[in-house]
């Protein structure tokens, strides 16, 4: 119940009927770190994020965000879903999507006003999409779509950001832009948690890591737990390409 943890998840199990996707996972994330959740396909990474956010019911376990239940501190949590989770042919513009980040603060029925629109424009500028603000979202590239999602989360003005595969299918420039924004967030004391695929970049991008494969394999500072041994535990034999990199 320590308030110093940004997220304190205990004994989380998530199951579809009787198939466990996440098995009894404990995870403590200190405030102000940038943490990667890594693990092979089907390890339950996205499920874990959704479980933390209450989007999927927990079969068992308990999540505290800044020592409180998620419902109480919802406004301190920003979320970037997987880019592929939505239909980008939806009739709306970049600005409109980014504005959605302010809806949580507005609550039911109240509409965004000038203040929110300014906030959205600032976020759009931050991700380098100003000239696209009125663009229809179906005309964006994958990288641009991801920037829009990031901008939307920025308008949430949260203390902790949960991101599902923020680098999947984006170009190198976008990846660099996103990582620099995330580092900026971290430097201003925010906590960032991202599901990540590319093991090579883990030590460069993140300072904290959780290895997941249905169960939690290891978790802690990258320097301590991002080891060959732990990776082998998480990925089984499929980790040879990292042999000379991880130590």
């Amino acid at each position: 119940m320590d308030k110093n943890w940004a997220i304190d998840a205990e004994d989380i199990t998530i199951a579809y009927h009787d198939k466990p996707v996440i098995w009894d996972v404990d995870m403590q994330v200190p405030k102000g770190v940038m943490m990667a959740i890594i693990g092979p396909n089907g390890a339950g990474k996205s499920t874990l994020i959704k479980g933390l956010l209450g989007l999927i019911p927990l079969t068992a376990g308990d999540v505290k965000v800044f020592g409180e239940s998620y419902k109480k501190v919802r406004k301190k949590v920003g979320y970037v879903p997987q880019r592929t989770a939505v239909d980008w042919d939806f009739p709306t513009t970049v600005l409109d999507v980014v504005l959605m980040g302010t809806y949580g603060r507005l609550g039911w029925v109240k509409r965004p006003r000038k203040e929110e629109i300014i906030l959205a424009h600032e976020a759009i500028e931050k991700v380098g999409m100003s000239e696209f603000a009125n663009r229809q979202i179906s005309q964006l590239s994958g990288g641009q779509q991801q920037r829009v999602f990031l901008a939307r989360a920025l308008t949430q003005n949260a203390e902790i950001y949960l991101m599902d595969e923020p680098f999947q299918g984006v170009d190198a420039t976008t990846e660099r832009a996103i990582i620099s924004i995330l580092k900026e967030l971290k430097n201003s004391g925010k906590t960032v948690i991202a599901v990540h695929h590319d093991l090579q970049t883990v030590p460069d991008y993140f300072d904290w890591v959780t290895l997941l494969n249905v169960r939690r394999i290891a978790g802690g500072p990258v320097k301590e737990v991002f080891t060959k041994e732990n990776l082998r535990k998480a990925y089984g034999g499929r980790i040879s390409f990292l042999e000379d990199k991880s130590e």
């Binding site: 956010l53 979320y79 939505v86 959605m100």
Partner: peptide, 15 residues
């Protein structure tokens, strides 16, 4: 506003 949000991105809306 809610219709738009939850039609476009139900997961985000729920979060």
């Amino acid at each position: 506003k809610e219709l738009k949000l939850l039609t476009f991105d139900p997961d985000f809306g729920q979060s």
